[in-house]
Computed example of a mutant assay.
Amino acid sequence: MLVLLPPSETKAAGGGGAPLDLDALSLPELNPVRRKLADALVELAADVPASLTALGLSERQSGEVERNATLWTSPTMPALQRYTGVLYDALDVRSLSGAAADRAASRLSVASALFGVVRAGDPIPAYRLSGGSSLPGFPALRSVWRPALEPVLQSDELVVDLRSGAYAALARIPGAVTVRVVTEDSSGKRRTVSHHNKAYKGRLAAALATSRAEPSTVDEVVTVAEKAGMTVERAGETDLVLVTDH
């Protein structure tokens, strides 16, 4: 099973690993696109105003441009430690050890506008590039990534796709399990969750990543989620709804 996570805009600083080496990343067939985008980000970083515009940042976020400027020379850390924020707080991989940590490392991957997809332990630097960004001289990122990324993500294994819209657009995955988070009030009325959406997806990812039983069907995903205390319903052949009361 592959659990595909969205990235986060916020990323941990620093790291103890050697500078970025694309050959050290999983899925080397993505390296030509990774290199083009990384080089373009570094070149763009020489023009701070242009970078802010392309990346959709404010002047107060100019430090993000500095990160891109040092993309090839700054230290790295494992992807699941680099990404931060609500989903990754709920996932809490740093608390895992032993067999649970091994299972999580083999099952979790993260979508990335810069790297396409990275596995849990892939060493990456801090950077800033969102799925909806438009780089000068490049078409939309979905047009850049789809030809390279879609063949890589075609698999016989079960894929649980937790990506947000901008990242789901970078590669379509036919047959992947998708999850929508909704809240249900006392009258039974439901609405899509926005604020806590990432936290619930992080909890689901943690349950799937660490389960001793590895799901291979949609029904088995539901079973794992329910054992973790979540209410999950099937809404279609591969569509799930995670129901909360918040």
Score class of each variant (00 low, 15 high):
Leu204Trp: 03
Tyr127Pro: 01
Arg212Phe: 08
Pro147Ala: 13
Asp245Gln: 14
Leu153Val: 13
Ala45Trp: 00
Arg191Trp: 14
Gly202Glu: 05
Arg172Thr: 15
Gly14Leu: 11
Thr70Ser: 14
Arg146Asp: 04
Lys189Glu: 14
Ala54Asn: 03
Arg128Tyr: 14
Arg35Cys: 02
Arg82Leu: 12
Pro174Trp: 13
Val42Glu: 01
Val222Leu: 11
Asn68Glu: 05
Val144Asn: 05
Arg203Cys: 05
Leu5Gln: 04
Gly85Phe: 15
Glu9Leu: 07
Gln61Thr: 00
Leu129Ile: 11
Ala18Ile: 02
Asp21Glu: 14
Ala18Tyr: 01
Leu71Cys: 05
Leu91Arg: 11
Thr183Ala: 06
Thr70Cys: 10
Leu153Pro: 00
Gly132Arg: 07
Thr76Gln: 10
Ala199Tyr: 07
Ala207Lys: 12
Thr244Cys: 06
Glu233Gly: 08
Val181Lys: 00
Gly202His: 04
Val93Ser: 09
Glu184Thr: 11
Thr192Arg: 14
Ala40Lys: 01
Leu2Ala: 03
Gln61Asp: 08
Glu214Cys: 15
Gly85Glu: 12
Met230Ile: 06
Ala90Gln: 05
Ala176Gln: 02
Thr192Trp: 07
Leu170Phe: 09
Thr183Asp: 02
Asp89Lys: 15
Leu22Met: 07
Lys198His: 06
Ala176Asn: 03
Thr223Lys: 07
Asp92Gln: 12
Glu214Gly: 08
